[in-house]
Amino acid sequence: MNVADVLNAFKDKELAQKVVRKIREEAKGLDELRFMHVCGTHEDTVTRSGIRSLLPENVKIVSGPGCPVCITPVEDIAKMREIMKEAYAEGDRIILTTFGDMYKIPTPLGSFADLRGEGYDVRVVYSIFDTYKIAKENPERTVVHFSPGFETTTAPAAGMLNAVVEEGLENFKIYSVHRLTPPAVEALVKAGTRFHGLIDPGHVSTIIGVKGWEYITTDYGIPQVIAGFEPVDMLMAILLLIRMVKNGEVRILNEYTRVVKYEGNVTAQRLIEKFFEVKDARWRALGIMPKSGLELRKGWKEFEIRTYYDPEVPELPDLEKGCICGAILRGLALPPQCPHFGKTCTPRSPIGPCMVSYEGTCSIFYKYGALF
Rank of each mutant, 00 (worst) to 15 (best):
V3Y: 10
D5P: 05
V6W: 03
N8W: 06
V20H: 09
R24T: 04
E25Q: 04
E25H: 02
A27S: 14
D31N: 00
F35K: 05
E43C: 03
E43H: 04
T45H: 09
V46M: 12
T47K: 00
R48I: 04
S49E: 10
V59L: 12
V62F: 05
G64L: 14
V69T: 01
T72W: 02
V74W: 02
A78L: 11
M80W: 06
I83P: 13
K85C: 06
E90P: 00
I95W: 09
L115G: 09
G119P: 03
G119K: 00
Y120A: 10
V122M: 07
V124W: 09
V124R: 00
F129G: 03
E140M: 09
T142Y: 05
T152I: 02
T153K: 00
A157H: 04
E166P: 06
E167L: 13
L180Y: 13
E186Y: 06
G192F: 08
I199D: 07
D200V: 15
G202H: 01
T206Q: 03
I208Y: 05
I208M: 08
K211V: 15
G212L: 10
I216L: 15
T218A: 09
V225M: 00
V225C: 00
I226N: 03
A227L: 11
V232S: 04
V232W: 06
D233W: 05
L240A: 10
M244L: 11
V245L: 08
Y256Q: 08
V259E: 07
N265P: 14
I272V: 15
K274D: 14
F276M: 07
D280L: 09
R282L: 01
M289C: 08
L296P: 12
K298I: 05
W300I: 03
E302G: 12
V313H: 08
K321H: 03
C323F: 11
L329P: 01
P336F: 12
P339Q: 06
P347R: 00
P347S: 07
G352S: 03
C362S: 14
I364E: 04
Y368L: 01
Y368N: 00
A370H: 11
